[in-house]
Design a protein around this nucleic acid. Sequence first.
RNA 1: GUGAGCGUAGCUCAAUGGUAGAGCUCCGGACUGUGGCUCCGGCCGUUGUGGGUUCGAGUCCCAUCGCUCACCCCA
Length: 425
Amino acid sequence: MAKRFQAPKGTRDLLPPETAVWAAVEDTARRVFGLYGYREIRTPLFEETELFARGVGEGTDIVGKEMYTFTDKGGRSLTLRPENTAPVCRAYVEHGMDRQPQPVRLFYVGPQFRYERPQKGRFRQFHQIGAELLGGKGPESDAEILLMLVRFLEELGFLKLQVLLNTVGDAESRTAYREALRSYLLPMKERLSEDSRRRLDSNPLRILDTKSADEQEVLAGAPALADSLTPDSRDHFGRVLSSLDAFGLRHSIEPRLVRGLDYYTNTVFEIVSEGLGAQNAICGGGAYESLIAELGGPATYGVGFAIGEDRLLEVLPADSPARRVVPGPVLVAAMGNVAEQVVEGVRGMVRIVERLRSAGIPAIESSARGGRLFELAERLGSPFVVFIGDEELAEGSYSVRNVSTRAQERLPVEAAIARLRQSFP
RNA sequence: GUGAGCGUAGCUCAAUGGUAGAGCUCCGGACUGUGGCUCCGGCCGUUGUGGGUUCGAGUCCCAUCGCUCACCCCA
């Protein structure tokens, strides 16, 4: 027997009927984001490696060890996109979108790639739904995009969501805090893990969100980032919070929330969910004030989020509108002599099925008989079975049977089609 | 990159170190103007892969690959 293949490690096939839920979630995103004036952008699945190295940050895990990087036949170093914010900003700069009316509101839907060991809620190819607001004014942009994010999740049936919020300050605040934190931790270096000790030099802020109980204890007496904020950053965060309050958007401040991408400044946020094991964040985001400038564009304020679609689907409420079952195709079955006129019978069936399709009714023919026909209808989710026999052919009618109520009527063709259409808006 | 658990048919699972099985699914037939069937028959395995121990390995050992979970980190 020939070798059998399987999807590469960390990737998976999405199969029906689950794909219908994915499509419904994405449709909801397009609709809700559209309500806020966001339009879709589709960037390449791969970019110059340098874009992510500079944009996401050399010190991040993503760049340090998780990139799918390859050299093409022209000797270029390319990388499968591990996230979509840097590509969107690249496109903003490349296409001179700073000359469009500001701010520019964009959203994206698509696969991202990170070379990691798979586990619950983590894949090498995963999917994100995200949005970026570029060229905005600052705190009010942050609040706007959070409002949209929460509305989207609520429309999917998530209730009582809590947004975890924090500020990491601007560059000046962070420099000040980095020093304060280092001075505090340095004397207690022995109590830190190897990783954390390394971060003491490279990225001390990252030590804050450690999960180790022992390190949490060490951190209990650490200086607060809030105390190192510049007046500007303090004001920024205050305005975000007051906007959210004004909009009635529930949130909680998590002083330890630090995100792993270098480009974030000031506002950062996360939405977490139960039922995902250790990978509990379904959405993360924040503001970035210098990314676009670092990519060669004008100084531009940006804020955005990315939702992990795979994780979102994992915890999607059972009663989510996105799970609404889409009806299967109407089954068309020949009866009596019609069924026995093998060749002409089949062609006649196809003509009838095509007629239904032309009227916008999904339909397939079936050669199943008796109980098997209805078993098939159940499995496909078909709301109706249409019977065509000699009598129907003679008088130009279809017998339409409702699978769930078992009610059956013989109707003139046009009336039958009108009846069937009611189930397929 | 590190650690742990698990790999038997498409799915769910059996098989004391002694002939690889069952149910479901799928396909074919009986049945052909009506219900979730019934009956008959059939396909499906180098027991993830490769070595080793043994008279004999699905079972024990080693390696490898894969899956799962966790660490790290993130969505």
